[in-house]
Computed example of a mutant assay.
Amino acid sequence: MRTFVRAADRGQLQHAADELGVTQQAVSKRVAALERELGVRLFTRTTRGVELTLDGQAFLPHARGIVAAVDRAVGAVRPGARARRIDVLGRRSAQAVVLHDHWRSRPGTALDVVTLRVDDPRVAAAAVRAGEVDAAFRTVTDPAALPPEVRMVHAFDSPLELLVGPRHPLAAARTLRPHELRGWRIWVPGIAPGSEWGEFYDQLATAFDLNVDATGPHFGDEVLLDVLADSADVATLVGARDRYVWPAGHDLRRIPIADPTLAYPISLLLPRTNPHPGLRAILDHLAGLPAPPEPAWRPSWATPQPGAGHRRR
């Protein structure tokens, strides 16, 4: 099929042979085999070379489409050519925001951002091992549960902020210390058992004696923001880089937490062997992200690795 397209474009079997790196005899045999398969003549010979028959003219656009589709199919599985497929927790998450910043610094970079919709990070690790994604922003908190074919690097730390409505007693604060959150209802709906964020909030609540309430189904960020806007006693925690948008009338407040900073550690899972070549650029971008202000609190399973995911500044 490719030989037929080249011969039709060049009008000379020899020119097609030169492009394809074969002999003119090989081109003639390929065209003849295709004609036998189709049961029609595709070319007529002239003193100048070859010309398409009416059947050849009808067949050419379809042949072009088939050759182009094959080229796209091959490119889709060629690691250096296809888009990097990266899993993030959500489209508004800090991971997605960081990836967007990376893409903006390299316009035109092929990047496929997906959400696996799984809570167990081990399932995400299995997807990396199987090649369903090239990398995943997930943390397997138990190193023994990480498949040997997958490695985990520290990507960056996401400082937490308190998000409250204008009627909340803490709404006027410029910054807060963790102990000032005691006694307030911090509503984080949808914490899934066995998830990395479930373990994070368990340790956070224990470390600072906080009331982290995960009751009730999570009907989406819009519903959560509506509740905060109307409440005088409900707050939630969000990452400093997380992207949230709400109506101007909500007048919600994002308040940094410091002394210590509550740092949510984010890791990147990727294959140990033959990772997508484009992942190096993402790792370099992560390495340039600033670290949260110190002192910082992190969960027990977090082990910052300067140089692997970011460098301290």
Rank of each mutant, 00 (worst) to 15 (best):
V5W: 03
L13T: 08
H15Q: 15
A16L: 08
A16V: 07
D18C: 13
E19L: 14
K29W: 14
A33K: 10
E35L: 00
R36T: 15
T46N: 03
T53V: 10
L60E: 06
A68I: 06
A73C: 13
R84E: 14
G90V: 08
T109K: 00
V113K: 01
D119P: 01
P121G: 05
A127W: 13
R129P: 11
V133R: 08
A136D: 10
P148E: 14
V150R: 08
R151P: 10
V153S: 08
D157N: 04
L160G: 03
A173Y: 00
T175L: 04
T175S: 11
L176H: 07
G190T: 06
G190L: 08
A192V: 05
P193E: 00
F200V: 08
Q203P: 06
Q203Y: 11
L210C: 14
H218G: 13
G220K: 01
L225I: 13
L228Y: 03
A232E: 07
D233Q: 04
T236W: 05
L237E: 01
D242N: 15
W246Q: 07
P247N: 03
A248T: 13
G249F: 06
L252S: 05
I255D: 00
A258N: 14
D259Q: 12
A263E: 00
L270F: 07
P271I: 11
N274S: 10
L279D: 13
R280Q: 12
R280T: 07
H285R: 03
L286W: 00
G288K: 10
A291I: 06
P292E: 00
P292D: 02
P293L: 09
E294N: 13
P295Y: 01
R298K: 06
R298A: 11
S300C: 06
W301P: 12
Q305R: 11
A308I: 14
G309T: 04
H310D: 15
R312L: 12
R313G: 04
